[in-house]
Design a protein around this nucleic acid. Structure first.
Lengths: 232, 232
DNA sequence: GACTGTAATTTGTTATAACAAGCATCAGGC
DNA sequence: GCCTGATGCTTGTTATAACAAATTACAGTC
């Protein structure tokens, strides 16, 4: 047909850059993605129930793709099912929060170590994010600081060039999303130097062990404000 | 009502053991579970396409729950979607296999360390599994040895009492399922003592560092037979 | 024979309806 | 007042059909 086929077209001619595969995003995909960022941004409170039909009218789609989007997030443990089968925003338990921190220590630590021999320009992105975080702390804009902190850790993980690890860590952050807004409830710990800085410096020196240790310290000593919002 | 309610019934009477919550397993859940164990047991070869309607007739259910089961496994990355949107058994790349091993080193290592102060009876289960593995090696029953090896590692992870970590590790094993049957293609490495034994001994001594190291060695030096069946 | 255009089949996607189970509301009786 | 029972509504689950896109099969043409 006239449309560009994926497998080698007729001519050996090189295609212009603007010829790229059409991305067809299904309705369920769109709902899924929207809900996911809402979760990560802390816009859905724990114990909120996401009933199927009300949700589908809110998204302007039918029940089938809506159910698909919700169940996908349930499969990722970003959402949960209550006894009735209704989708609900889960409330982390203390044990779960501690476990997530332990796993993050291992995985983010490994990603940082793996990213220690990266080009300087890639570390610049981290530097820029941390600069914005400091700025937010100064101006007391904690809501934005929370999201930037998340972005810092995820960008750090991307540096490790380990897609599977990244995906796991991202899921852990999504699971913490609903309580992340309380990250700085206990105030901002005024450690000197900030662990983020120690991470960045270690990366620039190419010292993978130091990077791993700095990540561990950042995870272990931060986030104390979250403990007030977990169960048991 | 007449049915046993979950929250404390009228009387303070202790309920007999045989009174247990009714488990209503949906059709999609059943299909999901069946496909999952088939995957973990290596009964689905990479690149196999699982088309929606043929699958649903094979399971004797309609398209909706079938699609739900398939997409749930896709969400867990145990299955994948090709360009057309057809569900397909993924073929691991070399990078993915290496990454999975690295992640398993961290997580299974942590689980082993956390399980080092467990009751002796729980370690006995590991001992029993490993005994069966040795037996299978002796009798050249490699197909069973593969499944037992998987069970050994998962049982070890359960010892750590970290549900989130366990679930992540289990997913990694499911992803390797389709090529796991080739675990011993290069023969059984006749190391002495077997890393499993070192793991068990370390657990019995309550030495978490030794347990972690033994796990690392088991993961790093085992599974060389898999590399022949990954891409790139 | 190789290529091309068309028809038929199969594919994933979405909407809709039927179903059963659960919950809430409210009237009625003690 | 409090409990009981019925009714109606809302919930998740499943089946089915309509749709569009893509692939396949096949015949016609050069």
């Amino acid at each position: 047909m006239s449309s560009a086929s994926a497998s080698e077209p007729d001519t050996g001619e090189i295609l212009p850059d603007w010829v790229r595969p059409i991305v067809k995003e299904s309705l369920s995909e769109r709902a899924y993605r929207e809900l996911r960022v809402a979760l990560m941004r802390g816009q859905l409170r724990p114990d909120t129930r996401l009933r199927l039909r009300p949700m589908s009218v809110r998204f302007g789609i039918s029940a089938t793709p809506m159910r698909e989007a919700l169940l996908r997030l349930v499969a990722e443990k970003a959402l949960a099912l209550d006894a009735r089968g209704t989708v609900v925003v889960p409330r982390l338990t203390l044990d779960q929060l501690l476990e997530i921190r332990a796993i993050r220590t291992d995985l983010e630590g490994r990603a940082a170590a793996a990213g220690a021999d990266r080009r300087a320009t890639e570390v610049d992105e981290l530097e820029a994010i941390h600069a914005q975080i400091s700025q937010c702390h100064a101006s007391r804009d904690f809501a934005r600081a929370v999201n930037l902190n998340t972005e810092f850790h995820l960008a750090l993980c991307r540096l490790g060039q380990m897609p599977i690890l990244y995906e796991i860590v991202e899921l852990l952050w999504v699971r913490c999303g609903p309580i992340l807004s309380h990250l700085y409830d206990n105030g901002v710990p005024d450690w000197e130097p900030h662990p983020h800085r120690r991470i960045i410096d270690a990366l620039r020196r190419g010292n993978s062990d130091a990077a791993r240790d700095a990540v561990r310290e950042d995870i272990e000593h931060g986030g104390s404000g979250l403990f007030a919002h977990v169960r048991a």
